[in-house]
Design a protein around this nucleic acid. Structure first.
Lengths: 282, 282
DNA sequence: AGGCTGCTGAAACAGTTGTTTCATCTAGCT
DNA sequence: AGCTAGATGAAACAACTGTTTCAGCAGCCT
C-alpha cells in the first residue's frame, strides 16, 4: 500500500480545484516541508482565501478534517527519505535506515542547541585559555581523547584527564580562571561527577560541559553548556552527533585561535597538511 | 546583538523551575528543532503536565503568552534554509548548517556501502569469533576504544591493541582462523599498517577493515571491508559516521550473538538496563 | 430575461486552546 | 501539631479555530 501524500493528491486533482482552492493549494505546495507548522486559519490568511475554502479544500483532497491534515503533515515532516511504509520494517535494510534517520535527527537537534552562539563562545574560550584540561570517563572517554588530539593541532597545553594512577584533583590543582576545562558527561556518568563539576566551578575555572539531556541538572555548574543528543534505535547510545560536535569545537577553536596568536599560519598549515597528506609508503 | 532563544532561557533558569515545569522544559529542549509543530495543549499532554503549568512556564521564561512562544519557535526553525540575511549571515549559521549537511551525506554514503549484507556478515563474525582483537591507531584509536567497550556489553574476550609497551605482534600471535580482528584504518594511518594487515591475513585470521576510501588499496587483505566516509567542510576529518557505524556493528554483534549463546538474556537485559539506568546519586 | 449551477466569504456555531482562578496538597519550618 | 509558601491541576472562562450554513454573485444555457 502506497501512502499518497498531500502534495500528490493536489497534483492529481489540481485541475478540478476551484480558483480559490488552487490558491490555497499553491501555498500548501510551496510549504510542504513546513506544513505541520501552520494551522488551517493561518493557511487561509496566508494564502488569501477564507477559512471556509481551506476547509472545503481539505475535504476535496480526501481528508476527513483539518486534524487529519495536521496529522498527515507531521508524518511527512520526518522526511529524509520517502521511506516505504512501516510494514517493511521487519527486515534489515529499513532497520539500518531507521538508525541513520535517528542519527540525522540527533545531528539536527545538536545543531539547534548550539548554533545560537554557544559554540562560538566555547570555541573562543578553548582557544584563548592558558591551559585546557579535557575530561571524559567511560563512554565519554573516546570523545575526550579525540577532542584532545584535534585541539593539539592548533594549540599546545591540552591535557587529558584522568590519567590512570593520578587523580583528577591533581590536574585540577594547577588550573585557575584563565584556564579551561572541557568535561564530557554523557549518560552513565561515573560516581563523583557532580563533585568534580562543583570542584571545577569552585576553583573558578571556566567549564565547557558537553553531555546529553540527562546532565541538565549539572548545567548550572558550567559556564558553557553544550547539549548533544545520543538517542538511538538500538540498545546502545550513539555518539555520532557528539563526534560531530567535537569536530565543530576543534574547528572553531582553531578558527578563533588564529586571530590572536602568532602561531596562526603554522597551525592552519599543519592541520591542512594533515588533511592532504599522502599516505606514507610502506 | 545575541538573540536569546528559548533553549538558552531554559538553561539559564532551569534550576529555579519547579519540578513539573522542568518536565515541560525537558520536552521543549528535546524538541527544540520541532517546537513550532506543537501547540501549548499538546506540549502539556506530551510532557505530562497540565496546561496551566505550561502557561506559567512560558511566563516564567519571559514570554508574554503562548503566541509569542509560537512565533519564537518559528523564527528558530529557520535554520537549514538559506536564511538569506543579506550580510548578516557572516558565515556562522550557515557554516554550521553546511557542516551538518556534510555529516548527513557521510551517513547516507556509509549506509549505502554497508547495507548489502556486509554489515550483517561482519556482525555475525564478531559475534561468533572465539576472540576479538580491535585495533586502531591515531585518529582511529578512539573509535577502536569505543567499539571495544560496546562489544564487551554482549561478549567477553574482546581486547584492544596495541597496548602500550607491547607490540601488536604479541596480541596477534595468539589468534587463528576462529578468531577475528577489527582493524580501523582511517586516513593518516601509521607506518606499518600494510604489514599489519598482511600479517593478519597470513595468519588466516578473519579481518574486518573499517576505513575511509583512502584505504581501498588494503581492502583485499580484509575478509570484510566496510567503507565509511569522513569528509568534512572543516580542516579536520569528521568521524561521526564512523561512530555511527561502530554503533551499528556493536548492535548487530549483540543481535547475532544472542542467537547462539545462552548469555542472550543476560546480555540484552544488561544493555537495556544501561539504557534505562537511573543516575546514581552523588 | 429567467433559471440554473457552482464558487465564495460572512456569519453562526460547535469545538478547542490557553489563561486565570481557586482549592488542595506538599515540604519546610517552628 | 500548626503555619506558611510554593506547587499543582481542575475548572471556569475568554479567545481562537474550523465547519457548516446561507446569501450573494458570476457564468452559462435556453
Amino acid at each position: 500500500m502506497t501512502v499518497v501524500n498531500i502534495g500528490q493528491r493536489i497534483d492529481g486533482q489540481y485541475g478540478e480545484l476551484s480558483p480559490q482552492e488552487q490558491r490555497a493549494a499553491d501555498f500548501i505546495l510551496d510549504h510542504l516541508s513546513d506544513l505541520a507548522v501552520y494551522n488551517a486559519s493561518e493557511l487561509a490568511r496566508l494564502s488569501g482565501v477564507s477559512k471556509a475554502t481551506v476547509s472545503r479544500l481539505f475535504r476535496r483532497l480526501g481528508f476527513q478534517d483539518s486534524a487529519e491534515v495536521r496529522e498527515h503533515a507531521r508524518a511527512l515532516r520526518s522526511y529524509g527519505s520517502p521511506v516505504g511504509g512501516p510494514g517493511a520494517s521487519a527486515g534489515t535494510p529499513s532497520r539500518l535506515a531507521a538508525h541513520v534517520e535517528a542519527e540525522q535527527e540527533n545531528l539536527r537537534r545538536m545543531l539547534v542547541g548550539v548554533e545560537d552562539g554557544r559554540l562560538d563562545e566555547a570555541s573562543r574560550l578553548i582557544a584563548s585559555a592558558r591551559h585546557v584540561l579535557v575530561i571524559g570517563m567511560r563512554n565519554s572517554y573516546p570523545l575526550a581523547l579525540h577532542l584532545r588530539e584535534q585541539l593539539m593541532q592548533s594549540r599546545d597545553r591540552v591535557t587529558l584527564g584522568p590519567v590512570p594512577g593520578q587523580s583528577i584533583g591533581e590536574d585540577l590543582a594547577e588550573l585557575g580562571p584563565r584556564d579551561a576545562v572541557v568535561l564530557f558527561g554523557f549518560r552513565r556518568r561515573a560516581a563523583g561527577f557532580a563533585q568534580l563539576a562543583q570542584a571545577i566551578q569552585r576553583r573558578g575555572v571556566p567549564l565547557v560541559l558537553i553531555a546529553d539531556s540527562s546532565a541538565r541538572r549539572h548545567s548550572d555548574k558550567a559556564t558553557h553548556w553544550l547539549e548533544c543528543p545520543i538517542d538511538s534505535v538500538s540498545a546502545f547510545d550513539s555518539y555520532a552527533a557528539a563526534m560531530s560536535l567535537v569536530n565543530l569545537l576543534a574547528t572553531g577553536a582553531m578558527g578563533a585561535h588564529v586571530r590572536e596568536s602568532r602561531t596562526r599560519i603554522a597551525a592552519i598549515t599543519s592541520a591542512y597538511e594533515d588533511l592532504d597528506e599522502l599516505e606514507v609508503p610502506w
